[in-house]
Structure formats: C-alpha cells, structure tokens
Design a protein around this nucleic acid. Sequence first.
DNA 1: TTGAAAGCGCTAACAG
DNA 2: CTGTTAGCGCTTTCAA
Lengths: 355, 355
Amino acid sequence: MKITIADIARKAGVSKATVSRVLNNRPEGVGPETRQRIQDIVRETGFQPNSLARCLATGKSASVGVIIPDIVNPYYSLLVRGAEDTLKKAGYSLFLCNSDHNIVKEKEYVTVLIEKGVDGIILDSAESDCDCQLELLDDENIPYVLVDRIIEGPAKYPGVYVDNRQGGRLAASYLLSKPGSSLLFINGPLDYSQSRDRQNGVEDIVRENGLAESSVRIVYGDFSIESGYRLTKDLLSNHHPASFGSFPFTAIFTANDLMAVGALRALKKAGISVPEQVEIIGFDDIELATLVDPPLSTVSQPAFEMGARSAGMLCQMMAGRRPRTKTITLETNLIFRGTTRCKESGKNCFSVPGH
Amino acid sequence: MKITIADIARKAGVSKATVSRVLNNRPEGVGPETRQRIQDIVRETGFQPNSLARCLATGKSASVGVIIPDIVNPYYSLLVRGAEDTLKKAGYSLFLCNSDHNIVKEKEYVTVLIEKGVDGIILDSAESDCDCQLELLDDENIPYVLVDRIIEGPAKYPGVYVDNRQGGRLAASYLLSKPGSSLLFINGPLDYSQSRDRQNGVEDIVRENGLAESSVRIVYGDFSIESGYRLTKDLLSNHHPASFGSFPFTAIFTANDLMAVGALRALKKAGISVPEQVEIIGFDDIELATLVDPPLSTVSQPAFEMGARSAGMLCQMMAGRRPRTKTITLETNLIFRGTTRCKESGKNCFSVPGH
DNA sequence: TTGAAAGCGCTAACAG
DNA sequence: CTGTTAGCGCTTTCAA
C-alpha cells in the first residue's frame, strides 16, 4: 500500500478531490482531458485505492459477513457459494464464519463483524430461541437476513427459508399413500426449527388421512450417518429375532440424507431389499444422495438458491430499499431415485393401486 | 456504528489517547482506577471500536484472503476450515474467494483483497505457470502462502504442499507389487502440477522395479465421477467382447476419489468384482470414499492440516518473522479399505506372495 | 471545472 | 500517568 491518491494528484498537477472524482466515475465536475490524464496516470502507476480509507470516509465497507454452522457440510458450502456469487456481482466481499452450531462463537463473530464494519450479515443461526445477536445488529442498524433456521421471537425477522413442513408432507404423503403402509420417521433434534416443521408435516398427513397413530413411529437422531444406522439397526434387532430379513415398517423417512444413508446401510446389511421391501426418502439432496446404491430418493432443498436469494435480499436492504417481502419461503421437491418404488416424478406415484 | 472513542473519552473525562490505551490493553500509561472507570463505561455503553479506523491508523486489517477454486468441493472446504480455525485463534478474519479454477477471477480477487488491505493471502492458484498475481502481491509487500498447487517460477514461493509424487509411488508400489500385475492409471489433466507429480510417482515405480512399459497404461480424466466411469467403460468395451466380466488390468489407480468412484461403478456394472478381480486406489480421501460400497482404498491428503499449516505459516510472515521453512511438504498416506485385497495398513501388504 | 479544508474513528509519538 | 497533536487515505461539502 505504497502509492496514494495524493501521489496521483501531484503527478497530475491537480487536487486529491479531482482524482477522487474520476476514481469514482463521477460524471460531473471534471473536464474530459483532465479526466483522461488522471486515468492514464492511474493506469501507469498501477495505483490501487485503499478501500479501508474509503470505507472510513463513506461509512460502508463493501463487505458482508456470512455466519454458518460449518463450511465442511456440503449443504452449507453450497449455500455459501450461492451467496458469494450474487454478492460478488454486487461488488461485495464475504467474510466467512463457522459457528460450529455454537451460539457463543456465533455471538463472537457477530461482534467481530460489527467491528469490521460489514454492511450486512447473512446468518444461519445456531439457536432458534435466542435473538440477542440480533439485538446487537439492530442497535448498530446493520441489515441482516436469516437463512435456513427460523428464530422465533416477537418480531418477524427478514429471512429465507425452505418450507420444511411442506417437505415433510411431501415425503409422508408418498410413503403413506398405499393402504397398509407404516412409516419410521428418523427426525433430527427437536430444538431445530427444521425438525419441528418436518415433523408437523408428517403429522399433518397422518391426521388428514385419518391414519392410525401407530402407522408412524418417530425417533430422533443427530443428523449423522451413524445415528441413522444405529436407529434403524435398533429396530431390526428389537424386532422379533425370527423375522430376520423383515422390518416393522414399510418405509423410512429421515430428516436428512446422511441419516438416510445410514438407514440404507443398516437395511442392506440385514438383507432387506430397498426399495422392494422398504422404501426410503431422505432430505436435503446432497451430492452423496446420487452416489449411494441405490441412489437415494429425497426431498431436495435449494441450498444454492437459498444463499443467492438471501444475498439478494440483503443487497436490497443494504441499498436502503426495504425488500419487497420480509421472508422468502422456497419450495422443497420430492426427487424420486432408487430407494422408492416410484422412480420418476412424472408418473402418478401417488395413485392408490387398484383405482 | 454510532458511539465512538471520543464519546467514551468525554464521558470519562479523559482524552481519546487514554481510552485507546485501555482499549488496547497497553499495560503502561494508565492509572488503575482510570482504567477501571473507562472499562466500566465501555461495558455500559456497549461500545465497539471501529476496526476500520484502527486499521487505517495502524496499517493492518486483521483479515486475510483465502482464494480457492471452489468451496463446494469438499477437499477445499476442509482446507478452508483448517485455515479459518487457526486464523481465528490468531485474531484474523477470513475473506473467502472462489476462483472457479479461473485465472482471471483469481486475479480480480487478488486485486480486491489488496484494496481491502488484507494482511496476507492464502492462495490455491488456478494456474501453475503464471505468477503475475504474485508480482502484484510482491509489489505491495503483502505476505502470501501458496497451497496445494505449485507455481513454477524462477523464485521459490512459500507454500504448503502435499508430496504428490510420493502419493503416486505409494499407490503404484502396492498395486504393482505382485508379479504379473498391470495398472490402469486414470490421471487428471497434465496442466495440474498435482497430476504431473503423481504420474512421476507411478513412473518411478515402474522404472525402479524394471517393469515392462506395458504394465501401466495412463489415461486422462477431468477429476469428475463421470470421466472415471467413462474411461473405465471404454476399456471394458474395447476389450474383447467375449471376455465379459474381465478387465485388461489387475488394478486401477485414479488421481482423485471421484474418478475412482466412477471407475468402481463401471466395473460393478460390468460384473467385475472389486477387489477380487480388480483392485482400486483413489486419491484425496474425501468422506465419500468411506461411503461407497465397497469403501474406497485411497491415498489420503491432509486437507484440513494443509489449511491449518498454511495459515500458521502466513501468521508467522504477517508477524514479520520469516517462517522457519519456505515450503512445507506434507505426507500422503495409503489408506486400505474395501477396494484393495489388503485391508489394513498394519499387515505387510507389500510382501510378494510366496515369500 | 477545480481546489481547499474538514472530517471518518482510531493510533502513536511527543510532551507535560 | 495523561493529554496534545498529527496523521492513516479517501470523500465531500463549500468556495472559488
């Protein structure tokens, strides 16, 4: 950071103000040949303005913070990618922050980001019942948009979500459509709003179709492959030992793909064929879903788009415009692959046999 | 960004300088009770110093840029995670930049980062024969460390790499250890230094053991699952059609895990059993490697550690110390899983049968 | 059309 | 121990 605007001004025999004007492409206030001369000098010298100084002067930093639980999780890395792409187009840089699902780290990051003078924040919060970070942001008047995880509170916060309840409905409604079907729902921890919503979705279906309570059993994993495996295996061994090769449910729905992969593995190991004997539907549609054998049917979440949309919304807010809508809810989609008997969304998979 | 150091100073009845001293925990120069009083006021008011202003004054920004090809690739996200963790500990924030393997974008980002006043840059470069970005950095006297990809040039650049040649040797030496073995090496594009090095490694083994040239065949994919699949399939169908269920090589080595997954799939589809008929070794050790069936044996790269080490090195440089070593080369490891007949590193898998 | 000057919020000598 | 005084590099009135 050697050469400054003052150097350019001196070389061009003008004032810093004039140089600043051409640097910022202000149409008025500079004669064409003066402008040209300055531009030439800038090019020759390879001068790069110090954006820190500019930010100090203007009060905006052209950077935003993105706080997510963990970039290593493909769902979040896709989301971040979506955000970065649209942010870059709008001229913003991105501070990446991994909270590890830890509300303390999350708050630390919010503080750091405020100090850095970010113009806005995209927050995938670690906790759904705590809005103290948001108070900070509100105090400082820094725009933010929530993503993925809903924070409950008196006020409605701007955010981009996916319709998790609808996703739950989609899966349950397919899996329970055939008479006599029964469902094992491996959900995530209930302190995630996503888990609660998805569960509401499957309960909707049970209720709306007047199904017996016993037709669905809900257990809780921790979103890991291992927990999906273990929970499924537990049911296999607790089941009557004589019935090796059978399973007490006709289908499994899991709150993410990783647990579905675990369940699939447990079933295969027990000699139960998928989807012939048991159908499986996951949630997320990560790349891995297409790579297991058979490829996993799943409820897809548009992670990239969520990142992009939240960034777009934030840009609006940073530009001073109130966004058109305070929250955006994206659709989920049921993707039929190899773990459901129905293989394509095109066919009418929901029709009850015999009708 | 409302309340400033001047406000605090006024409230405490001292000068800005004094407030600055306690803010920065300078031990000397402030009386204990003055210090206490100021700290109290800071706490009450929830004052957060503007780090932009601080940076302008000190000339350092406490942030570094990380440029990688694509955060969606699990290898890079792990690397970034490693960097972030150690950077955070040292008090730095991280600007994330995805270059998409595009040298133009990469240069853009280098420029942006310089303007942002980053204290340093970690660069996983998109091109191995272009060092013009580095000139920029050198001009500005901004420390940087290269990672993963070697940039050739007159000077040796500071960097953290993995011993790709050694990785190639490891795989080839196992795969070619048995008499009569032959190897299909599915490499990546040769304009990647990694590809060249890995190829050198397998060629080393051929030469050192006096094997026939024909014992290894090299083809080139693009690191995608699809290319691994296609390249393997080509060899299957070009092979004598009558010999369905056989393969012209006893083993496959691929330059990354994704292509190995593709190869595995092609083989399975052709009814060739892995590892009984053909052994496979990949490269990288991404999570997916453990999830395919059978789980993939592979040469592991310590992505997280590479990120962490490069960050550590950069911190040294940013602190003004020359790092102990200019380049760090990390070891690769051969991980035996299900696609090799040998299943554990513990056993002497390299012994020639009959000895 | 251009320049002078006053900051943006903080740090860092240098004096008291 | 504490205050004064300059800046850091750029933007932005307000005059000229």
